[in-house]
Design a protein around this nucleic acid. Sequence first.
DNA 1: AACCACGTTCTTGTATACAAGAATAATTGT
DNA 2: ACAATTATTCTTGTATACAAGAACGTGGTT
Lengths: 224, 224
Amino acid sequence: MVHSRRSEKLREIIEERIATGRYMPGMRLDETELANEFEVSRTPIREALMQLAYSGLIDMRPRRGAVVVEITPQRLCEMFEVMAELEAMCGRLAARRMTAADQHALLKAHRTCEEAHKKNDPDAYYRRNERFHMAIYAASHNGFLIEEADALHRRLSAYRRLQVRVRDRMRTSFLEHSSIVEALIAGDGEKAAEMLRKHVIVQGERFADLIASLSSFGISGESG
Amino acid sequence: MVHSRRSEKLREIIEERIATGRYMPGMRLDETELANEFEVSRTPIREALMQLAYSGLIDMRPRRGAVVVEITPQRLCEMFEVMAELEAMCGRLAARRMTAADQHALLKAHRTCEEAHKKNDPDAYYRRNERFHMAIYAASHNGFLIEEADALHRRLSAYRRLQVRVRDRMRTSFLEHSSIVEALIAGDGEKAAEMLRKHVIVQGERFADLIASLSSFGISGESG
DNA sequence: AACCACGTTCTTGTATACAAGAATAATTGT
DNA sequence: ACAATTATTCTTGTATACAAGAACGTGGTT
C-alpha cells in the first residue's frame, strides 16, 4: 500500500461528490460514516474536510460537524460575476499571448463542442465545454490565473451542469463560443473579454432559469 | 479552556508569520517543533498546515514535510496581475453600487493615508493603505469578490510591505489613490477600474524594484 | 580514497484512545 | 399534559501511540 497522504485523494472524491450533487447542499457529512465508507480512520477524513472548509465548499461549525454549504442564489450570482471577470481576463491575455499550439487546442475543443451540440447531448457538451474554457485559461499564460480560474470553475461546475440543460442554452452557448474563438484568433482582447464576460455571467432571464433549476436541485428548497 | 478548533487560530498565526516574512520562503516547518511552541499536539498543527497547503502558501510533499513556498518573481507578477484585475473589478462595481456610507469610509481611509504620507511613515502607510483597499472591496457589494480579494491581498501583503519602502512609492501611491477616489465618487467605473489596475500591477521599473527587494527578503537568493 | 550498501534515526502519516461540548431523551415538577 | 431540567448518548476535537518512508551516517568493498 502506498502511504502518501490519502487526504488529498479523499478531498478530491468528496469535492467531486459535492460538485456532482451527490452530496447536496445542507447535507451533513459524518466523519465516522465517511471513515467507514472509505475504510480509513477519521484522521485523513478530517484533514480532507478541513481543506474543503477552507476552500468554502463545506461549513464546519465547531462541535457541530461539517455541512455542505447552502449557496444562496445571490451568492451564486456573485460567484458567477467573479468567474466572468476571471474568464474575461483570461481571454484578454490569451488574445495577446496565445501560441499556435494554444490556437490549435482551442479550435479542437471548439469542434468537439460542435459535435456534442449537433448530437444534442448535454452531458457531452458539458464536459467538452469545460475543456473549451480550460483551453482559454491555459492560453492566458498566467499560471496563477489558470489555477484560480480552474478552482472556481470546479466549484461552480454543479450549477454549470444544470444550466446546460436549460432549453436552447446549448445552442446559445455554442454560438457564443464561435464569436469568442473568432475574437481570440483575431487577437482582439477587449472583444474576447467582453464576450466571455457576457457568456459566463448570470443575469436577466438566465437568472430566472438558474433559480428554477436550483429548486429542483434541492437548494433553497425544503432541505434543512 | 475553550475547545473550539484551534487549527483555525493556528492557521491564522502561521499565515501571518509567512506574510510578515518571519517564516521565509524555503523554510521547513517542523510539525513537532510547532506543536511544542504552541503547546498543542501535532494534530491541530497538521490541520492548520493542510489548509495552508491547500491555499498555496506552503508546499507539502508526502513524507517530506511542509515548506514555505518559494515564490518566483514571475509567479509574483502573475499574482499581482490577478490582484490588479480583481481590484479593477471591485472599483468598477463600487463606482456603480457604493452607498453614502461606503463613500464616507473610503474618504476617511484616504485621509488617514494622507496623514501617514505626510508623516513619512511607511509602516503606518502600509496599514492604512490596506484599509483603503478594503474599503473599495467592500463597496463592490459582492460578498464573494470581497472574500477573494481579501484573501489574495493577504497572501501578497508581505511583498506589498516591501514595495511601500521603495523610494517615492508612498507619494506615487497616494497620488494614485486620489485619482481613484475621484473616479469612484464621480461614478466613473471604467476609469476607476483602469486606475486601480495600473495602481496594483507590477511592471516596468516597479518590477525591477520588486526583484531588488526580493533578494534582500531572501527569496531567490541563497536560501535552499 | 571514493562509492555503494546497509542500518539507524528522525519525521511524517494513520489509527486509536480519550475528553468535552452538543443533541437528545427521559424524568420530574407545576 | 406540558414544559423545563437533567442525564445519557453521540460526535467532534485533541492527544498519543504506532507504522512506514526518507534522510543520514557508518562501514565495508573495490
